[in-house]
Every structure is written in structure tokens, then in C-alpha cells.
């Protein structure tokens, strides 16, 4: 996390999450890209998937909102991964 940023330069978190296959990354993207950030949160979040990777970019001027957003994302990501482990592998398209 870049903590040196000032108000004019937003705080940024970038995550790259690998999945066993690109299909699983695609499913995680499908689940995790739906929900908008809460209205009161100032965080801008973008989710992209490329091959077997999921890339998430968080941006905010407020470190507290940023932390909450990243924490929530990890909770949700964990739930997706566990769901895949117990109820996967994905059926063929």
C-alpha cells in the first residue's frame, strides 16, 4: 500500500489473485464484480480477469474506507474459493 500519498494523490491497493484455471478466475470475477461499493464509501474498485488471474484495483483518499473495502473483499474472496473447493470443479461450458 502506498501510504505516502497526499490528498491530491489517492491511496492505492493492487491485488493479483491466481486461480488453478482461467475458468475459475472467470467465475470469481463473475461473483465479485457485481456488488458496488457502499454509497458512503469513497473507494473506487475495479476488477479484471485475465487468463487464470484476478486483478483488483482499489483507490481512495481515505485510508479507513480503503482498509474496510480491502478486508471485505478478502472475506468475500475466501468465501468464493471455499465454495469452489466444496462444490466445484466447474461444469464444462
Amino acid at each position: 500500500m502506498d501510504n505516502s500519498a497526499t490528498n491530491s494523490e489517492p491511496l492505492v491497493v493492487d491485488l493479483s489473485i491466481p486461480f488453478p484455471t482461467s475458468r475459475e478466475a472467470e467465475i470469481a470475477y463473475g461473483t465479485l464484480s457485481v456488488d458496488a461499493e457502499p454509497k458512503r464509501s469513497s473507494v473506487k474498485k475495479t476488477v479484471v480477469h485475465k487468463d487464470n488471474m484476478l486483478h483488483i484495483h482499489f483507490e481512495s483518499n481515505d485510508a479507513r474506507f480503503l482498509r474496510v473495502s480491502v478486508n471485505t473483499f478478502f472475506d468475500h474472496l475466501g468465501l468464493v474459493v471455499q465454495t469452489m473447493e466444496r462444490f466445484g470443479p466447474p461444469r464444462l461450458k
Partner: peptide, 20 residues
């Protein structure tokens, strides 16, 4: 409540995709 709704929906979305 927002957070509990989303947590539950996440499982539903994931299995919907896993199971097509």
C-alpha cells in the same frame, strides 16, 4: 441488511456459475 444479503448472494452466484 446489506452485508448478510451480499454474503449469501456470493455463494448463490458462485454455485450458479460452477453448476451452469
Amino acid at each position: 441488511m446489506g452485508a448478510p444479503l451480499v454474503s449469501t448472494a456470493i455463494v448463490a452466484r458462485t454455485v450458479a456459475q460452477l453448476w451452469q
